[in-house]
Design a protein around this nucleic acid. Structure first.
Lengths: 254, 254
DNA sequence: CAGGATAGATGGTAAGGCCACTTGGTGCAA
DNA sequence: TTGCACCAAGTGGCCTTACCATCTATCCTG
């Protein structure tokens, strides 16, 4: 008689992968807080009972995930890094590049994040944060009027300050990540549509309205402006049904 | 006279990193479609002019990003994989894991995600997705009435189906990550508040209302229910100013 | 006491080698 | 002819050893 037990697939487990898991778990569980040091490669090689190349493969993976940074010298050893939106943005870009993520999803997500961040910024911004946002708007205006190439940077800087004013670190990190992915996607299209600085001036006008709504603590209006600005700017790149869903989501279609 | 040129940071570039970039670019540009094979490690080592450990470090990184899979044997070589959204979820989790989260941020973020996902689900759900959500509600009800220990699983399963019905993978993945982080943060508190199943029944009642709003495609109401449910359930754990910000964000305070 | 020289440890990279396994073909047998 | 068992070649997995540039801490000198 055969047993009714069902076996699970015996996929091979790479030793470097087990090392990654152990170190990752130790970091995420707080055993190694940000800024602390792991044992050196040569020590880890002893602790895990593997050779140095294997340890290094694991450390490389963790490094590419943005969790670690090598630190040479005496008393050195891999250092645990603070979280950065870079790796998340990188994942977004990879998914977009391999077409397992479409633009509509990413745009929806950014509309959700930017809208909510703007509402929160309107509600709870401090004077210092307001001053930073105002300065950001000014830099945008100058860059647009001079038709400067660093307009995109100024644009990002302003929105970074809005995210920061939301008081929510997660919003800030993920907003940054999505922004990077979206910009990467638009870079190709940006080349064929020359640096028409009328669109830059229009962006400045819209963001100025957003800033003023935040300034007078009008959360509803701030959210509305942020959402519609993104939708109006990008919706032409979407298919018809995607556009319709977006309009319904914004409450602009019955 | 000093030049006004501003230099860019001269951070060291690791050779493994340049190999990763080259291979990644080749894959994303379509030069190596899904299912195709890269040259073997020994070939790559010749093409890049580096040693095998260096090539392997690069391949490990790409492998951990879910882009490659090793394939031994004659005519072997790394094979390009179909992209999986798992890596995106993984990025979310590590970002949330290393960020020093406080409950208020996490709760805000989940309110934003769940509210938006519920609105989208109301707008664009299909019959099949509706049936899955209905089934999820039923499982929740059964688990609550039996006071079963797997109520949390049933709860998660229902919300997963709402996220899925939103049609947005990113919402789904990040919702899952935030849910996990929130649960991890609450696990300590959960022990002292025993499994009072009146709260479970209350959850079922609320989620049933959410489901019905989604069913009749009432996006506004669905979003409102999702947001207020989370706020009501967790706000008692927040400080007073955090509660006030939350109430303002929900539009329930002047 | 300050500052520079020195020694030790660390990570970066290379070279060579062994093993288990997969694959593809070959040759034998039915 | 067909099927199958066997074998050789190539691949990734892992290890060992080794050298170098660089950084840090310490000590020593001025």
């Amino acid at each position: 008689m055969t047993s009714s037990h069902s076996f699970t697939a015996a996929s091979p487990v790479y030793t470097y992968q087990r090392i990654v898991e152990q170190i990752e778990h130790a970091i995420l569980s707080g055993e190694f807080p940000v800024g602390s040091q792991l044992p050196s490669e040569r020590d880890l090689m002893g602790q895990f009972g593997v050779s140095r190349p294997t340890v290094r493969e694991a450390l490389r993976v963790l490094q590419s995930m943005g969790l670690l940074e090598p630190r040479p010298g005496t008393r050195g050893g891999p250092v645990v890094l603070a979280p950065s939106p870079d790796t998340l943005g990188r994942s977004f870009r990879t998914m977009l590049g391999t077409a397992s993520l479409d633009l509509a999803e990413l745009l929806q997500y950014r509309i959700i994040l930017d809208g909510s961040a703007s509402e929160l910024a309107a509600i709870r911004h401090t004077d210092a944060e307001l001053a930073l946002m105002r300065e950001g708007i000014e830099r945008m205006r100058e860059a647009a009027e001079a038709d400067a190439p660093d307009f995109a940077d100024a644009d990002l800087a302003f929105h970074e300050r809005v995210w920061a004013a939301s008081g929510n670190q997660i919003l800030s990190l993920s907003g940054h990540a999505v922004w990077g992915a979206l910009r990467g996607l638009l870079q190709r299209d940006a080349e064929r549509s020359p640096g028409d600085n009328s669109v830059k001036l229009e962006s400045v006008r819209i963001d100025t309205g957003l800033f003023e709504a935040i300034e007078r603590r009008d959360a509803t209006e701030a959210g509305r402006i942020a959402r519609t600005a993104l939708a109006d700017r990008f919706s032409s790149m979407l298919s018809d049904p995607e556009q319709r869903t977006l309009e319904q989501f914004l409450g602009r279609a019955p």
